[in-house]
């Protein structure tokens, strides 16, 4: 063992890992439980996964979640890309612009959700899919912005100078050099925004309107009727999808070229 290490490093690490992941492991384990009562183990089964596949309300909630996440992540990524390009060179108020862009990371979501609801109601905006996409886009922007910005900072300005030198005007340079080099960052930003939207509960709950649910909202309402293994199964699916997408996002962000 490395003599420079602090004592109990291994023990502390194991404790923290357990602290973080035991609930998740329990959730996933019980999603394979055959017993109707979620907390009593009988034997392993895939029944609940089969049931969520054929449950129409889960299907529609999943579809809504997907539509909102794709739309919001796309809009947020486009806006974040423009913002990253605009804040590339320092200007007066550049820092302030970045702070404002990243504000949704810090603001309490409940306050923003209530504020958005009040605004939409007072403007007479119909609650539902459109309103949810608009609100999701807003809080997804920083999640798309950060990876794009990090990627952009890593691209030397010399490549663009070289493209200009080789007779490509500003538009051609963007299309042939900047964008291809930026692409992994854009994909990483999109993926992160997508997961953020997919997992959102508060904003969706406030703006859903009558008869519209997303997966997190469905889980919340179902759980009030009691924890069922079905909930475990949906949660496990969402968890795996999110982990895969976030891993993909990190991988894309670290992609060299």
């Amino acid at each position: 063992m490395n003599p420079q290490r602090f004592p109990f490093t291994r023990e502390t690490s194991l404790f923290v890992l357990a602290y973080l992941y035991v609930p998740v492991v329990v959730l996933i384990a019980y999603s394979f439980n055959a017993n109707r009562t979620a907390t009593v183990w009988t034997h392993a089964s895939l029944d609940w996964y089969g049931r969520i596949l054929v449950n129409p309300s889960i299907q529609s909630a999943a579809w809504n979640s997907l539509v909102i996440a794709v739309s919001a992540a796309t809009a947020a990524t486009v806006l974040a890309l423009l913002a990253a390009l605009a804040t590339r060179r320092a200007f007066l108020g550049c820092g302030a612009s970045e702070a404002i862009l990243n504000m949704p990371l810090i603001l309490p979501e409940i306050a923003v959700a209530v504020a958005t609801l009040l605004l939409f109601v007072s403007l007479g905006v119909k609650l539902g899919l459109g309103a949810m996409v608009a609100a999701h886009t807003a809080f997804c922007i920083p999640f798309a912005y950060l990876p794009i910005r990090a990627r952009l900072d890593g691209i030397s300005g010399t490549y663009e100078e070289a493209a200009h030198d080789l007779y490509a005007n500003r538009f051609r340079t963007f299309r042939r050099v900047t964008m291809p080099l930026l692409w992994p960052g854009v994909m990483a930003g999109f993926t992160l925004a997508f997961v953020t939207s997919l997992d959102d509960f508060l904003t969706s709950f406030f703006l859903a309107g009558p008869g519209l649910t997303t997966l997190p909202v469905y889980i919340f309402s179902a759980i009030r009727a009691g924890i069922t293994p079905e909930i475990n199964a949906i949660s496990a699916v969402m968890l795996v999808v999110s982990v895969l997408l976030v891993s993909l996002s990190f991988f894309l962000g670290r992609l060299r070229r």
Binding site: A162, L181, R256, R257
Partner: peptide, 9 residues
């Protein structure tokens, strides 16, 4: 260029 600036992609 000093750094060559070859397009990596």
């Amino acid at each position: 260029f000093q750094s060559y600036a070859l397009f990596p992609h």
